[in-house]
């Protein structure tokens, strides 16, 4: 599965903040991007800034990531199940001393992005990228206008600027090849409207054999699903 993926196209370096609306897939994308880059030889750290949603966060997958040598920064163990907005001081430390690639998985909507403004001191004098994850099969980002609205709200709350788009069209287990093509067309249009580059799109790893890669002008990040309900098994992440 390593044959296709964004590692083949480019190694990503720097500090990347992953934002988007609730349930756009920020966490699944962050985890898979971290794994993809680690496999390509990039040193990766990932921080879970999701202070909004206590279910399904990066911290759920941290054991699998740790096995691959990816450091996951989360609040202290004793606060792990607390429904409290805890911003670990480790996170500002992480930003001050970043890895080759430092991924920051922010919380959903403008509410989740608000905390980024609190990190302004740490971000000062750093080149920081902020990418918006878009799944057009989610409510409130199913039209170009609503994606622009989401972008404005997140930028206002975080006091930062989004500089790229990640297309994450999916219906989880029910995603079809057509959904991937339609989702690509949607984010391509969004990219044209916003003049923001389309950094990459995603596709479930199981669908890759059926997808014509020539269809896309951007890289494709394969998704090996990690955030699964308890009756399903997370994909086994090989080195």
């Amino acid at each position: 599965m390593l044959a296709i993926g964004i590692a083949e196209v480019e190694k990503i370096k720097g500090i990347f903040i992953i934002v988007g609306n609730f349930g756009s897939g920020k966490t699944e994308v962050s985890i898979n991007l971290a794994v993809n880059q680690k496999r390509a030889g990039v040193d990766v750290k990932i921080a879970d800034l999701d202070l909004v949603n206590p279910y399904f966060r990066t911290r759920e997958a941290r054991k699998a990531l740790a096995k691959l040598g990816i450091e996951v920064v989360v609040p202290e163990e004793k606060y792990l199940q607390a429904d409290l907005p805890i911003l670990s001081p480790v996170i500002s430390g992480l930003i001050r001393q970043p890895s080759d690639l430092t991924l920051i998985d922010a919380g959903g909507n403008d509410v989740g992005a608000t905390v980024l403004a609190a990190l302004a001191d740490s971000f000062r004098n750093k080149r920081v990228h902020m990418l918006q994850v878009v799944n057009p099969f989610r409510p409130f980002t199913d039209t170009i206008e609503s994606c622009l609205k989401m972008r404005n709200e997140i930028e206002r709350a975080s006091k930062m600027t989004i500089d790229g788009i990640i297309g994450n069209a999916n219906l989880i287990d029910e995603t079809s090849v057509d959904d991937i093509y339609n989702g690509y067309d949607f984010v391509k249009t969004l990219s044209g409207e916003t003049r923001l580059p389309l950094k990459f799109i995603t596709a479930p790893v199981e669908l890759l054999p059926d997808i014509d890669m020539g269809h896309f002008s951007c890289p494709v990040l394969p998704i090996e699903r990690q955030l699964v309900p308890p009756w399903k098994k997370a994909a086994d992440l090989k080195r």
Binding site: F22, G23, N135, F137, R138, P139, D142, N170, L171, I172, E174
Partner: peptide, 14 residues
């Protein structure tokens, strides 16, 4: 067609 929703959102829409 189908859309992807969280249970709580879907309950509201329903």
């Amino acid at each position: 067609g189908k859309i992807l929703m969280k249970g709580n959102e879907a309950i509201g829409e329903a």
